[in-house]
Amino acid sequence: MPADRTPAQVTAFTLVKTTPEWLAMTVAERVHAFTTQVVPVIEARTQGVRSRFYDTEFYSARVTDVWVWEADDHEAYRLLIDALRETPFWDRYFEVVDLLVGVENGYARSYGLDPVATLAT
């Protein structure tokens, strides 16, 4: 069976740590900063990108949050990172600890296999 050649969605796990500047803001100030300084830049510079956010500070001292980004393709992901770097998000409000980028079931796509996954019961 030939490998799947359709464009693969890119998933990126952005591991970040809050900075003292971010923590010094009130919750209302944080929401305002994110919705006025970060979101508009992302929306103006990217298409085909979705996000989810996970708090991890109660489990990890090194990483306080994991931001999961799903991009339609590698170009959309690249534009996202370019946009984020031009906002206070990047290394002002959050220290970017690591970027883990992958393609879901990449091995199956490469070898023309059905993905192996567990199902919730």
Rank of each mutant, 00 (worst) to 15 (best):
Q9T: 11
T6P: 01
V116M: 07
F58P: 00
P7T: 06
Y107P: 00
D91C: 02
P115W: 05
D73W: 00
T14K: 07
D82Y: 07
E95T: 10
A3I: 08
V66Q: 04
A3N: 13
S51F: 11
T118H: 07
T26M: 03
E43P: 00
L100I: 14
D55L: 12
F13W: 12
P2T: 13
E70H: 09
L15H: 15
V16C: 06
T26V: 00
D73T: 02
A28R: 08
V16P: 01
L99G: 01
E21D: 15
A71T: 01
V41P: 01
P20K: 11
T11M: 06
S51C: 07
T87V: 02
V38M: 08
Y111R: 13
V68M: 12
R85T: 08
T18N: 10
R50A: 14
E104I: 02
E70D: 15
T56M: 06
Y93H: 14
T64V: 02
E86R: 13
A12H: 08
F89A: 08
V101M: 03
M25E: 06
L99N: 10
L23R: 15
R45H: 12
D55Q: 12
S110M: 12
Y93P: 02
P88L: 03
G102C: 07
R5K: 13
N105W: 10
E43R: 15
I42S: 06
V38T: 09
T56R: 04
L79K: 14
K17R: 15
D65R: 09
F34W: 14
V31F: 10
V31A: 14
T121V: 09
G106M: 10
V96E: 06
V16S: 01
Y77M: 05
V68R: 06
R52P: 01
R62W: 09
Y93R: 03
T11I: 11
F53W: 12
M25A: 06
S110K: 12
F89H: 08
Q37G: 08
V27F: 00
V66E: 04
L100F: 11
F94S: 00
F13V: 05
P115E: 05
Q47L: 07
A76I: 00
V116E: 07
T56W: 02
A61E: 15
A61Y: 14
R30H: 08
I81M: 12
A108W: 04
A83Q: 01
G106W: 12
R92H: 14
T26F: 00
M25W: 08
T64Q: 07
L84F: 07
D72V: 07
E43G: 04
A24Y: 05
W90Y: 14
K17D: 10
T121P: 08
L79G: 01
V101Q: 00
D114M: 09
Y59L: 12
T35Q: 13
A76W: 00
V103Q: 05
A28W: 00
Y59H: 12
E29M: 06
V101E: 01
Q47C: 07
V63C: 03
E70V: 07
V16T: 11
M25K: 14
R5C: 04
R52H: 09
D98H: 12
W22P: 00
V39Y: 05
D114K: 12
V97Y: 02
R45K: 13
R92Q: 14
P40H: 09
A24P: 00
R52S: 10
L15T: 08
P2Q: 14
N105Q: 08
W22A: 04
P88F: 04
A108H: 04
T46L: 03
E21N: 11
R78A: 10
